[in-house]
Design a protein around this nucleic acid. Sequence first.
DNA 1: CGAATGACAGATATTGAAATCTGTCATTCG
DNA 2: CGAATGACAGATTTCAATATCTGTCATTCG
Lengths: 195, 195
Amino acid sequence: MATDNALTAEQILSTAEDVLRRFGPAKATVVDIARALGVSHGSVYRHFPSKAALREAVTQRWLDRAHDELAAIAAEPGPAAERMHRWLATLFAAKRQKALEDPELFATYMVLVGEVSGTVEEHVDTLVAQIREIVEDGVRRGEFRDTAAGPVARSVFLATAHFHDPAHAAEWSRPAAQDDFEALWSLLLEGLRGR
Amino acid sequence: MATDNALTAEQILSTAEDVLRRFGPAKATVVDIARALGVSHGSVYRHFPSKAALREAVTQRWLDRAHDELAAIAAEPGPAAERMHRWLATLFAAKRQKALEDPELFATYMVLVGEVSGTVEEHVDTLVAQIREIVEDGVRRGEFRDTAAGPVARSVFLATAHFHDPAHAAEWSRPAAQDDFEALWSLLLEGLRGR
DNA sequence: CGAATGACAGATATTGAAATCTGTCATTCG
DNA sequence: CGAATGACAGATTTCAATATCTGTCATTCG
């Protein structure tokens, strides 16, 4: 057998992701997940206290994976303005690609994300912290005016919500979306540079 | 009788609004509206071709009413920066008040708005045009740097989506929401002024 | 004669009984 | 002995029968 026979939380999460993908968030049951693993559903409850906790863990895992590429960009060398633009554009591109290439899977994750507000807040904090890193570096380099990096980073995140918040996914397929993004970035960049 | 006896579209719209308020968007039927008016439901179909059209007209009416105060602010005299701040703050305050004071009614309108994407786009265009007015005036007055007012106005609207788009209504009750708004406004104002 | 009615067909929503699922735990398995 | 099982109670979902609604139109009303 591929994994010998120890049932791990990781295995369950991975299979749960498959089952959610296949059946959708409304239909996927713990019994389905157990069946896909070839175990009884009782065994799943040895690793996760509830279906909700399992779904939250799947979501967490998914959000964490989405972080990696962005964290790398935030830490890159070079001009902060260009880096922030790349960071935001990458975030937008990643979300848009996921939403357009497999809308059903994206809808599945939208449902999951809607269930776990606490987890999402942490996720947002992580992203804002990455923006803040870039802002602070920009101030150090003299590219940006010297402001409270925390609030400014949060403002940049909120201002670009249209391009990364799933609530706006329906607008991402409009041809003008990229132009809208670039126009907004120009305005924000002016704001970061200041007088 | 208050209105003698001619059944007008306006009467139907007004009553439809009441019924929607009372029963909610899922339960309110054309029969309910006709009953509230004291007529047969066939009569309603003399004025509106379908239930969908009636609901759209109710939504249109509601959105139009929401415009008035803002249009007045956009046309006020005085510094453009201050006016734009007041315009945005008024929009945010109006939405937030509606969402918090009567969440069920707000949910009703969220459903209706979700049904009529075309109508909403027009509504957005109207609002963006008002922002554009203020931007152009600001450029004339030398307060803002000289840029394409159209795209900038749209950027301001998109950047503040967090504070006026119903999709974000859940966040409007957070105590930090007003601070977030002011921080974002500062950043946008810097961006409008430029170097 | 134009406005309103109400009966009607097809579409949609409601309801309650039956099936399935969640979460627990005494028991079995290795 | 710790991990897995499967039977179970209560909660939730499904499904099909029933009721209601939407939209039309021949007829009535004023």
